[in-house]
Design a protein around this nucleic acid. Sequence first.
DNA 1: AAACCGCTCATCCTTTTGGGTGATTTTAAA
DNA 2: TTTAAAATCACCCAAAAGGATGAGCGGTTT
Lengths: 160, 160
Amino acid sequence: MIEKLKRHKELLGYAAMMAVLMLLLRWLEFRFLILEHQFEIYVTIIAVFFLLFGIWLANKITNPKEKTIIVEKEVRININEPFILNETELELRKISKRELEVLSLMAEGLSNNEIAERLFVSLNTVKTHSAKLFEKLEVKRRTQAIETAKKLGLLAPTLG
Amino acid sequence: MIEKLKRHKELLGYAAMMAVLMLLLRWLEFRFLILEHQFEIYVTIIAVFFLLFGIWLANKITNPKEKTIIVEKEVRININEPFILNETELELRKISKRELEVLSLMAEGLSNNEIAERLFVSLNTVKTHSAKLFEKLEVKRRTQAIETAKKLGLLAPTLG
DNA sequence: AAACCGCTCATCCTTTTGGGTGATTTTAAA
DNA sequence: TTTAAAATCACCCAAAAGGATGAGCGGTTT
């Protein structure tokens, strides 16, 4: 709202400026046709005017750049409540279903080989998935991945 | 980097444009001094040029407008009773303090080497401890050890 | 003193895990 | 339809983890 008014104000300002300019030019044309530096002045005015107009136009056109600020909000949760998967975090880190599947089997303590057998894929595939997971979770080892994942709410906590 | 190149490209473009304009104007001045619409053309060219220049200038000058998006990130907090170590299980499995120490560092995702540094012992020592732990917990891998330990109440559960 | 235990460390060897890269295929979205 | 992302697999190499075994040291218990 205020933004719009400001822009309108600017616009009106420029319009008024233009009107004044026109009058000024007419006046120059008919009154002092043979003024010594008339041409230079005229050109300068035009230049300055369009320069300002260009600046204004650019400001109008430019799309504002977005900056995201993540604010952590504490939420108290009872242990006994069922685990709720944090899908926001999943999307944020672009973790696929398959990767999450591997992650969860990892957390159960399975080796890559066992995971491969469980999912009917090759060992190499499991490795690829785990490598991507480590990148996305910003960790170096599977144990860290499990820790981090639980903290982020991607895996259910292990309760005795 | 790409941004900078783009800007440079633009800059060079404008420079070239200006040079062409100068030549054009000279040409107009000396060759067709009495051309019918010379003045209007000249002014138009000046106007267009400064309009573009203004746009370019504005883009250069304007500090990027930041639009802040606040994303609330839920952080799970456990208000339940603090973790109670299951000492019975500890005694039953004859797990020593040192072993438990290693186990807990393991659960934090540390490598054997990092654990060794943390405890001021050699890598081999850590390996020995972990090997004994695996025996006592009846597991094969550290990930399983962590899982089992949490289930037995030897380690605090990881809560988001 | 002998036996035992926890802690320490070593060596040798194998398996597992992880990093990097590249390729193909399937699937989903624009 | 073109593009983009996911999922699949391979190969190579390096680092970490694990298994097996032996051994020394400082305590406590008997």
